[in-house]
Amino acid sequence: MRAFTYERPGTSAEAAAAVARRSGAKFLAGGTNLLDLMKLEIETPQHLVDVQDLKLNRIDPTREGGLRIGAFVTNTALAADERVRRSYGVLTRAIMAGASGQLRNKATTAGNLLQRTRCPYFYDTNQPCNKRRPGSGCAAIGGVSRQLAVIGTSDKCIATYPGDMAVAMSVLDATVETVNADGTSRAIPIADFHRLPGDTPHVDTNLQPGELITAVTLPKPIGGRHVYRKVRDRASYAFALVSVAAVIQTNGAGRVAFGGVAHKPWRVKAAEGVLPEGAMAVSARAFADARPTQDNAFKLPLATRALASIIAEGRSA
């Protein structure tokens, strides 16, 4: 691991200023992904700004009847929150489908949003990777791509966003709140938070350098049946091959987002509009522009079937 200096400021404004002030500075929350990448020298920050003292560890009701989740709330605390379990069950389900108990106790809301891809070529520093080393090429294209993206890819990158939590936040229309070093703040709809790889796969999100996530807000509850279905190689503690986050109302309408298929949570509103027509109709629209590889073409029927099982479960209940 490369050497770095470390500080623990007491306010969000100080933290944002601290990262803006120094080149090579990064925020540190739980550290479960960043520290792993630092050991491999995929991430080489020269200065870490620890955000644990910023008092961002509360979940508060909003005036609009929703919830404001502090950036530093752990995955376990968020999933276990009574209000989240009752009214945003898809979020509890998604979080509990990811990682292990030890990791969820340490990983945070903001950190989970910012976790980096698990593409094996991103991790293998002997391979070219446009995300790790811009311009070096993509070894995943033409390589082993079973886990990788089927839609929204570019000729520079076919990595997936690996997380579960953000897929649920996508169907819940969550908003990411941030502050900048100059004191300005903004609210980014979750749909605009993660990016497609395009020509700049090294840029995962639309955050500006030094911009600090302070919270994620959820609008008021929308009712419905909340489901997160994750298909993976093991029963527990594995990344998704395909996942489906769904909130389905009694009339069969609802919202659907897919994980494990793209560089961001994949939600197509025109596709979920035909939910009452069944899973085939939804996935035909959601994946109309899919460009799978030979290795990962199985993800398309798998996504359809995962959604079909969710719909069928609702009918039999």
Binding site: Y6, L28, G31, T32, D50, T76, Q102, K106
Partner: peptide, 28 residues
């Protein structure tokens, strides 16, 4: 040493974590 095996699990402030994926300075 990468949070995948759990051999390093300890209990910090009542919560189990992977001690390999945590900096000591974070736990001052």
């Amino acid at each position: 040493d990468h949070g995948q095996c759990g051999a390093c699990t300890v209990i910090v402030e009542g919560q189990r974590i992977n001690s390999c994926l945590s900096l000591a300075v974070q736990h001052h």
